[in-house]
Amino acid sequence: MSSSVLATVISNGQEDLLKEWVQQQIQAEGMRRDLIKVEELTAQSREFLQRFQGAVGSGDLINIRSIAWSPVLESISDLSRQRGRMGFTPTETALFVLSLKAPLTRLLREAHKDDPIKFIDEITVVGELLDKLGLYTMEVFLQSREEVIIRQQEDMLELSTPVVKLWDGIVALPIIGTLDSARTSVVMESLLQRIVETGSEIAIIDITGVPTVDTLVAQHLLKTVAAARLMGADCIISGIRPQIAQTMVHLAIDLSAVTTKATLAEALKTALQRNGMKVVSSSAV
């Protein structure tokens, strides 16, 4: 059985293997000595090697998704996530598993000194196995990156839709970033909720931070305005930049039913006027 040979080879030469492997990792091109200490690397490698040896001992060298391999996969995924967070590149992360190939090959060659055919067979199996583990490392690495992106998107969604009270009866919603369907529903809900909470009759939607307005974005804006109107609040759209005004006219977006102002200041002035208030300089009083 080839597997038992591999297991024996590893257990016999464990300390040598570990030393050689760690050496291999440290000397490898682009190893980030600044991000990880040699002691830590050695500890990680030792733990992995123990689990690897256990899994090899089970006799299954083909299917790394089997139960025997789950401790190995677990330690790989921990390591991969950790390195992803620390800022390792994908190559540097994959190198951890892949650099085990050279020392293992050397050990096997010593074990099969007089049987080259068996040595080649053995090397093929081990090579495939390590490649699979390397690919798994990459998979987890990318997955952890993806998770970070998704979390950031969610954070942004929450952060980017604050509804601020400007005055008694006036709330403002500064929108920053592109309005898509998902964001519109969040924006709409939080705006309407605040309108109810504050009893505001006027809501100013400021789109200074919206980079482009196409028909879809305009439709979302009009939906928000319509929903606010249904609840009894008037909307003023402010911060329409000249280019956006031009595109809106070219796209034949009809905003005639909505009050629009060039700046938030203008909008606030109008809103105060509607509530029967006026801002005057103190010297005029």
Partner: peptide, 27 residues
């Protein structure tokens, strides 16, 4: 029409019923 809940307002808009010509108020 007064006191429409946010959820109701969103539903009506999504249904394409913006009740044009109906006056609305908060309370």
């Amino acid at each position: 029409v007064v006191g429409m809940q946010p959820a109701v307002a969103i539903t009506l808009v999504e249904l394409g019923l913006s009740l044009n010509g109906v006056m609305t108020a908060l309370n």
